[in-house]
Nucleic acid binder design. Structure first.
Length: 549
RNA sequence: GCGCCAAUAGCUCAGUUGGAUAGAGCAACGGAUUUCUAAUCCGUAGGUCAGGGGUUCGAAUCCCUUUUGGCGUGCCA
């Protein structure tokens, strides 16, 4: 609807031969007296046109008023244009929503934009934690929204299955394995993985292999343990993600990147660009040339690459695969790393404006109002599975999506479990279920939508009804905001508002009235559309729409 | 020290990219159920948008600065 009005204004500007700055907006005003929609077009263009805002507004209002879609166009304040839509337009648009069904909001808005969304990318050294859960909810919903808007999004998980951390994983397993066989371990190393799951893995490996592993060379044994642990943990992670309704189009393996020589390739490009040098037996990247604080090591004195090299190589593949937008969803502890990566992108003469980094802030889990303390070192963490067990997928996803990504998140475990109005996810789902129940009831009194012929939407004359239609018409614009800003939390707010409008409407009006079938049919049509929009919204957040609660 | 992120109602947070009188939810109190689901609705309150300065028709929003908090600043990943 905003787009329609925007386009109408542009047409009008052209018609009356005015130059214009297209950077004006169409909005829903906070104050209802200001109309259904308002635009600041006259204010924004004062300078360009060297005219008073009020005069510009007047010219536009006169021309636009000729259209039948607007009931009135008023000039207000310093020069705002306030539009009141003709009610006939509401009905026309409501009909479109009904016709579109589950496709409502779909468009080619993001046409031919290939978007890579890399998210979670947790080390394959343990179960996924709540930070990964937040990243999962975020990345997956962004994917769904972009998909709905005609982008070509692609979900990817970067699997760090090579390097130092993975060696430590193998060593941790080795220690637990030895313990099973009665070997004394003086002290479990601080840097090793302490979680109980390592013990469980050792136990499984033991049932599989017994003492056979002791007859291998140490290198072979560690290799076997590494692969075993990686496989098992990978499976664990996939199964947690599945419970959370998060899927990936690709798992990009670091091991594979190494095996395919991508690292060498990246290094040689950097060398060709004259951005590397040797010092103290190590190879450095002169990243200071590209705005970094200091030069970074690429190859350590021991001959091994630092983590930076595979990461550069990985991003090189992102560019080579032709993505227009490259999104990295990272934890807040990674921002020190990005300056180096960006420097490398520039050194390789790639367009670094394509690369966007999104930082998700930390999460505090609250139990009885207290922060639940977690420590990776001691293995005392709450996993994604724990969270799903505790509050359920729907509540978890809603809570993660309800806040903007850059904000710290206090996750109240008790609140998420509550099945009362305090809990917003139930509030939204309940609206859906309630509508379902009304529709069912309608069938019983032979008023089902299917039997309504020639639905007279004109019967929807109450302000509350027009407001609900208007709200639904905002939906496509909300999705665009979510996608453009990479902020799916706007959708959570939207669906809550729509649910609230429905609950209020339900309490105030009788939807089924056997004495008045025309009105009933129109209202059924309306709430059915509301149900549809709620369901699409929840679906885009990865939240279910239960028919009954 | 330097860099990044934040600071809005008692609490948790929005705030449509610079718009008109800054909004929700929760918590508190009172009320509504012969009903299409009360997991709901109706009513009552709260603000120096952390402080200061600047930019302009107009600032919670942009710039500078101070304060407070979180994180980063490895030949770890």
């Amino acid at each position: 609807m905003k787009t329609k009005i925007y386009n109408d204004i542009v047409k009008s500007l052209k018609k009356i031969n005015l130059n214009y700055n297209k950077n004006f907006g169409v909005e829903v005003p906070n104050i209802p007296e200001h109309g259904d929609f308002s635009s600041n077009v006259a204010l924004v263009n004062t300078k360009v046109l060297k005219k008073k805002p009020h005069d510009i507004a007047k010219l536009l209002a006169e021309d636009l008023s000729k259209k039948r879609d607007y009931k009135s166009i008023k000039i207000a304040g310093p020069g705002f244009l306030n539009f009141k839509l003709a009610t006939s337009l509401y009905y026309k648009e409501l009909k479109k929503i009904g016709d579109a069904g589950t496709d409502y909001g779909k468009s080619d808005y993001g046409k031919s934009q290939k978007v890579l969304i890399e998210f979670i990318s947790a080390n394959p050294t343990g179960p996924l934690n709540v930070v990964s859960a937040r990243a999962g909810a975020y990345g997956d919903s962004l994917y769904r929204i972009m998909d709905h808007l005609g982008f070509e999004p692609f979900r990817e998980f970067y699997l760090n299955d090579a390097g130092n951390q993975v060696d430590i994983l193998a060593e941790s397993l080795e220690i637990r394995y030895r313990e099973l066989h009665g070997h004394e371990v003086e002290e479990f190393p601080v840097e090793a993985y302490h979680g109980e799951y390592i013990k469980e893995l050792a136990f499984e490996l033991n049932t599989l292999e017994g003492t056979k592993l002791f007859h291998m060379t140490e290198d072979d044994r560690l290799e076997r343990m590494k692969n075993f642990a990686l496989d098992e943990i990978h499976k664990m992670q996939i199964s947690s993600l599945k419970r959370f309704d998060v899927e990936f189009d690709n798992w990009m393996s670091e091991k594979k990147l190494r095996a395919e020589g991508t690292l060498e390739e990246a290094l040689s490009y950097l060398a060709e660009a004259g951005c590397t040098y040797e010092k103290d037996d190590a190879v450095f990247f002169s990243s200071t040339k590209f705005g970094d604080e200091k030069d970074r090591v690429l190859i350590k004195a021991d001959g091994n690459p630092t983590y930076l090299v595979p990461d550069i190589a990985y991003h090189l593949t992102k560019y080579n695969r032709g993505f227009n937008i490259i999104l990295d969803v990272l934890g807040p502890d990674h921002h020190g790393h990005v300056s180096k990566l960006r420097a490398a992108i520039k050194a390789l003469e790639l367009d670094d404006s394509k690369l966007e980094i999104i930082y998700l802030q930390h999460i505090n889990l609250l139990q009885d109002g207290e922060i639940v303390k977690m420590s990776k070192r001691t293995g005392k963490i709450i996993t994604m599975d724990d969270l799903i067990d505790e509050v359920g997928k729907d509540a978890a996803r809603y809570f993660f999506l309800d806040r903007r990504p850059s904000a710290h998140l206090d996750f109240d475990l008790e609140l998420a479990k509550k099945k009362t109005s305090e809990n917003p996810v139930f509030y939204c789902q309940y609206a859906y279920a309630r509508i379902n129940s009304v529709l069912k009831k309608a069938k019983k009194v032979k008023l089902s939508l299917k039997k309504c012929k020639d639905i007279k939407l004109k019967k929807l004359s109450k302000k509350d009804e027009l407001d609900i239609i208007k709200k639904m018409l905002e939906f496509p614009a909300i999705l665009q905001l979510c996608a453009d800003n990479r902020e799916p939390h706007r959708l959570a707010g939207y669906v809550h508002e729509l649910a609230s409008m429905f609950h209020k409407y339900y309490a105030k009006y009788k939807i089924i009235d056997e004495e008045n079938p025309d009105l009933s049919c129109a209202r059924l049509y309306l709430i059915s559309a509301v149900q549809n929009v709620i369901s699409i919204s929840l679906g885009l957040m990865g939240i279910s729409s239960p028919k009954k609660m």
